[in-house]
Design a protein around this nucleic acid. Sequence first.
DNA 1: TTGTGGCTACCATCTAGTAGGTAGATTTTT
DNA 2: AAAAATCTACCTACTAGATGGTAGCCACAA
Lengths: 191, 191
Amino acid sequence: MRDTRAELLAQAEILVRGRGYSGFSYGDLAEAVSIRKASIHHHFRTKTDLALALVAAYDARYDVALAGIMAAQPDAASRIEAYGRLYLTGVEDGLGCLCAVLAIEMDTLPDVLRADLARFFDKHIAWLERVLTEGCADGSLRPGLDPAATARMVVATLEGALLLERLLAGSAGFRSTLAALSDGLRPPRIA
Amino acid sequence: MRDTRAELLAQAEILVRGRGYSGFSYGDLAEAVSIRKASIHHHFRTKTDLALALVAAYDARYDVALAGIMAAQPDAASRIEAYGRLYLTGVEDGLGCLCAVLAIEMDTLPDVLRADLARFFDKHIAWLERVLTEGCADGSLRPGLDPAATARMVVATLEGALLLERLLAGSAGFRSTLAALSDGLRPPRIA
DNA sequence: TTGTGGCTACCATCTAGTAGGTAGATTTTT
DNA sequence: AAAAATCTACCTACTAGATGGTAGCCACAA
């Protein structure tokens, strides 16, 4: 038995991340999943409902990933790098960040959706702020670094790099940015 | 005598930067400029023609701005900061970067347009790389920093910050990211 | 027998784009 | 200088196709 709802979410995510929210239609999605356009409405009454479900699923996946990083990585510096690598699959698959794509079209989005997007990013920033604060304390990151500001900067850099390198140099470009980012966070070498 | 073509470009830019490329229509634009939809086709035969003109005008404005920074700012560190401040008006006006918006919808864009976008970003990266190389030499930036990688990172950070802070904390958030970015580029304090 | 998950057929509205016309300015020809 | 031709910038009216969404029907499983 196939899980149509899950397939719809998976294909819709690919479509949105590649073409933007207004850039994909129920028609496209129907074709991708091989059911009729009207049948999609059975699973997601409106396009907004679909978008909300998309963000919720995406957000949940990130929750798992962030918890995994906390468990697998010992220190702040490697946690930040592991966080950065999360974005890498997007570049490799030629897909932007779902929430970045939606954020771009902000002005056309319903308020609920916009609020969910803000929550998504705020959560990442808060997580990074905690990691960065630890990193300053344990010496794996440059002391005197502002955790709140740097957390915002890290998310911005990775979102920006995904956006850019999908268009430009692909994963090589992304890795290069990731290296430059880590460089700026490391404690200064006493050479 | 009013310059309808210029008004079309100005209003179209606002629409695209706020709602995405597929998110705005000739109908919207016609209303914004108070002429009939069909009349727009007189100035821009197709939507792609309009997008190309939009990018060309945007790119030209940045050329002027970059030249201005070279003339007005004495050292690399202040040039980078001035470059960062260029993005600030976007945050303040609640408008994303035109080329970032278009890049998000990459998969739907005609090849010509995609090539123009790549050229836009490559130009910025090349400019920054030059400035960064100078900065390493004259000591206003952290020595040993990789100019090519850092240039990509700077553009990524600013594009990402514009995207994020338009949704989140506005210009305060953006300034905070800008400060964290500069911090990472500065030579280490010998406290 | 009730709910699930599809379907066909439809709807109003919007989409980019076309056809063809008009009023006025500019340019060319006489 | 007058007349003719052309160009500019807009218009109304239209097209074909896409858009999100609705109504109602059917098969099947619990």
